[in-house]
């Protein structure tokens, strides 16, 4: 396994407990030394799941690059890359697409691979963008309601309902959405 900060082999593997949460660290000799020095100095070592990611991203990126990365926002769920870096949790399936470049190195560090092998849905991969579109529309709907734009809200609600009905038809009809509903 590679060190999570560089390309060297990880020789030290640590499970760190912070507030009852375990974080796994895989470090090469040099980064391990840095980590242990910080721990010895009495400070909280600045390495944890989210911060490990931020450290990883500093490699080869200037401060300006990072600022730019942090401001990137997923149009579907609205989370920024900065929020992901802090929480370690993505906001929606579209984040994998939206932050693809940024996540690639992280996935490689965690798993050593970036391509899925194994089980797949029997009906194949869904059309993710049309599904995540509904997530975005629900967000727009909430906004429209808070802005008292009821005309837009009602239009969005109908569109969401139509899309969801189409998804259901696809599921029951194996993709032949028009035909599956014809007899209803």
């Amino acid at each position: 396994m590679k060190c999570q900060y560089c390309d060297r082999t990880a020789t030290l593997h640590i499970t760190e407990l912070v507030d009852g949460k375990a974080t796994e660290l895989h470090l090469c000799k040099e980064h391990a030394q840095e980590y242990l020095t910080q721990a010895d100095a009495g400070g909280t070592p600045s390495i944890g799941a989210p911060s490990a990611l931020s450290q990883h991203l500093t490699v080869g990126n200037t401060e300006e690059d990072l600022k730019r990365l942090d401001q990137k926002v997923c149009p579907v769920c609205g989370i920024s890359f900065y929020e992901f870096r802090n929480s370690g949790r993505l906001g929606c399936p579209n984040d994998y697409e939206c932050f693809q470049q940024e996540l690639e190195g992280l996935l490689l560090n965690i798993h050593g691979e970036t391509k899925h092998v194994g089980k797949r849905p029997s009906s194949g991969a869904p059309d993710l963008s049309s599904h995540t579109q509904v997530i975005q529309m629900r967000r727009q709907l909430t906004e429209a309601v808070s802005e008292e734009n009821y005309e837009l809200a009602s239009q969005l609600r109908d569109e969401i309902r139509d899309l969801q009905a189409a998804f259901r038809r696809q599921r029951s009809g194996g993709g032949q959405d028009e035909g599956a509903d014809a007899g209803q």
Partner: peptide
């Protein structure tokens, strides 16, 4: 149901781990 599944990355989860 329709799971969040991507051809390349497989099943998509809240945490990339």
């Amino acid at each position: 149901v329709t799971y969040a599944f991507d051809d390349r990355l497989g099943y998509l989860t809240a945490c990339p781990t």
